[in-house]
Design a protein around this nucleic acid. Structure first.
Lengths: 260, 260
DNA sequence: GAAGTCCTTATGTCCGGACATTGCGTTGAC
DNA sequence: GTCAACGCAATGTCCGGACATAAGGACTTC
């Protein structure tokens, strides 16, 4: 009785006393500083999966922060799927191995991050009237000028995907040189277009003779297809694309969280 | 000068005075009540895309709420992708047509929601030792007992997908009858398993003779494939599945938001 | 007429506190 | 020994205020 009173079933994983501190002089928000420190602690293994984070009140006191600020930091990581909160219990690190959730990502940047040294060959880069399929997808008036770009994306010299994209001509210029040295999304971002959301459709079909020839696949091979309409933060549609991937060399990998 | 002072360029879209009110006696949180009312207002067209929401302070005063509560409601909709906030400007409804973001969804429920009346034929439902591929994916000890379920998912009598799933045997029972009357996820939820996240991999390949036969596709047809490991809110892996979809009748449709 | 500066506006950040509600262990009764 | 009632601990909700910061327009100046 006594021992169970003063050493009551210690939480299975007591958090090692982390070195946490915030810099109030920094312009980066306090809650963000804290979130980043917790995130790296999880990645480095200082916070092991399943370990409890310790209650918010005490954590706030230890850092000299208020509880709302600490909660905001924790909420950021909960939304990322790194932490789980349960009322009456506490906040703990999820067991799941880290894997980034699916984001509105760029193929080029994904490949580069994987160390695959992507390269791009621009096959077409012209302006002209938009096909009906494109004006419908982008919600543009008919007979609108669009920039049409056809690209072949390669890794280590091997074709990986065939990308066709359509953008409203008045949005920005797409110099072929820039398209070959970075991805389309990076180029748009540099020109002040901040992406917000995209509607995607992923499917499969047998490739046409032209597609298989470009991708170096045998005729009629199964290909992975993706159609996408992207919108910026003002809600304007800014890009329509139809992509075809070599199924033998590429899959979509991503993580999903249950809707909160 | 005078007129521009007292009637300064009215915001392009002034929000129609919405009928908003919260019920403080209700057990449902105030911020959630407000979020739901705003959401339905957007869906009904009472709040048109691009319209400003009016500043938080005034909105809070009008509802008799505090600003943090109003902000929490708005944040919910921002996370859903329905609203966009810009500092110094205001909060406005996105132009993008509504389309639900990708969630950890059930094929059965997606089809049912689309009015496609899905049915299921259970081809196998046995227990046995887990293949190495499954123990690796689920992080289970070798020679562990798992429940193996093979199902054919149909809509309007036509085959749509061939689903193979593996679950730790000690987790729950999978009566064939229940599997045919609802989806696997609904069954797990009824047994107290709350899903939290999943790691997915989507690809394509030509179908085997057996697969094409089951799905009613010509031999060697291109199929859409999906592999998934699901985790519950404690981080335990609870399900491993390999699914094959008829590419001619099914695509993954979803919406992505930029990572915040 | 064009450019820079000020000012308004609205969200972003942060604080300190209060009470409600849930999960779970402990205690106590039967 | 089993079960119900109590109480503790932690997150969930909500309030009222304060200052910082960015975006955009209006004004002034050149």
């Amino acid at each position: 009785m006594m021992p169970s009173r003063y050493a009551p079933s210690v939480p299975k994983h007591e958090p090692a006393q982390l070195r946490l501190a915030v810099d109030r002089a920094s312009p980066v928000p306090l809650y963000f500083q804290l979130a980043r420190q917790l995130e790296t602690a999880i990645e480095d293994g200082a916070l092991t999966p399943g370990s409890l984070l310790g209650n918010e009140i005490e954590l706030a006191a230890r850092l000299g922060l208020s509880r709302p600020t600490v909660r905001q930091a924790i909420r950021l990581l909960v939304d990322k799927g790194l932490l789980v909160r349960r009322r009456g219990v506490g906040t703990q690190v999820v067991h799941t191995g880290v894997a980034r959730p699916m984001a509105l990502s760029s193929l080029y940047e994904d490949l580069a991050a994987a160390g695959l040294h992507p390269t791009t060959r621009v096959l077409h880069n012209t302006r002209g009237p938009a096909p009906a399929e494109v004006t419908a997808a982008l919600g543009l008036p008919e007979s609108c000028q669009v920039t049409v770009v056809h690209r072949l994306r390669l890794t280590r010299g091997e074709p990986m995907a065939y990308l066709c994209n359509y953008l409203p001509s008045d949005l920005l210029d797409l110099p072929t040189g820039e398209l070959e040295s970075s991805g389309l999304y990076a180029l748009m971002r540099r020109h002040g277009i901040t992406l917000h959301s995209a509607q995607q459709s992923v499917g499969a079909r047998s490739g046409t003779a032209e597609e298989c020839g470009l991708l170096g696949e045998p005729a009629g091979a199964a290909l992975l297809t993706m159609r996408r309409v992207s919108y910026d933060d003002r809600g304007r549609p800014v890009e329509y694309g139809t992509h075809v991937y070599r199924a033998s060399r590429y899959t979509f990998e991503f993580r999903l969280l249950v809707r909160g």
